[in-house]
Computed example of a mutant assay.
Amino acid sequence: MTASWPPAPLSVDEPVGAPTLLPARAYVRAEVLAWERRHLFAGTWSCVGRVDELPAQHGVTVGDVPVLLTRDGDRTAAFANTCRHRGHELLPDGGSADGRVVVCPYHAWVYTLDGALRAAPRFRDVPGFSAADHGLVPLPVEVWHGWVFVNATGDAAPFTVHLGELAGLVAPYAPEKLKLAARHDYRVRANWKVIVENYQECYHCPRIHPELCAVSPPNSGHNYDLPGAWVGGAMDLREGAETMSLDGRSRGAFLPGVDRRRVLYLALFPDLLLSLHPDYVMTHRLRPLAPDTTRVECSWYVAEGVLDASYAERFWDRTNRQDWAACESVQRGLASPHFRPGPFAPNEDAVQRWVTLIRRAYLGTPPWEGQ
Rank of each mutant, 00 (worst) to 15 (best):
Cys298His: 06
Arg260Gly: 11
Phe315Tyr: 04
Leu264Phe: 08
Ala325Leu: 15
Pro278Phe: 08
Gly305Val: 00
Thr283Val: 03
Val302Met: 10
Gly257Gln: 14
Tyr265Ser: 13
Trp300Asp: 04
Ala312Trp: 09
Asp323Ala: 13
Asp279Arg: 05
Leu272Phe: 00
Ala312Gln: 08
Arg314Thr: 07
Trp316Cys: 02
Thr293Tyr: 10
Thr294Phe: 07
Trp300Asn: 02
Phe254Pro: 09
Glu304Pro: 04
Asp292Gln: 13
Trp324Asp: 03
Arg318Trp: 07
Glu304Lys: 00
His284Val: 02
Cys327Asn: 14
Ala253Pro: 04
Leu268Tyr: 07
Asp292Glu: 13
Leu268Ala: 08
Pro291Trp: 08
Pro270Phe: 02
Gly252Asp: 13
Glu328Gly: 09
Ala290His: 04
Glu304Cys: 01
Gly252Asn: 03
Arg285Thr: 04
Leu289Trp: 05
Ser310Trp: 06
Val306Cys: 15
Cys298Ala: 04
Trp300Lys: 03
Tyr280Trp: 06
Asp317Val: 09
Tyr301Ile: 00
Leu266Met: 07
Leu274Asn: 07
His284Gln: 13
Thr283Tyr: 05
Leu307Trp: 07
Cys327Gln: 11
Pro291Phe: 09
Gly305Arg: 00
Arg262Ile: 11
Tyr280His: 14
Val296Arg: 00
Leu274Glu: 02
Pro288Gln: 08
Val281Ala: 05
Val296Pro: 01
Leu255His: 03
Thr294Ser: 11
Thr293Gly: 12
Arg260Phe: 12
Val306Leu: 10
Pro256Ile: 13
Arg262Asp: 04
Ala326Trp: 12
Tyr301Lys: 00
Tyr311Thr: 15
Glu304Gln: 00
Ser299Ile: 07
Trp300Phe: 12
Pro278Arg: 01
Ala312Phe: 10
Val258Pro: 06
Leu276Phe: 11
Thr293Gln: 07
Arg260Ser: 06
Asp259Gly: 04
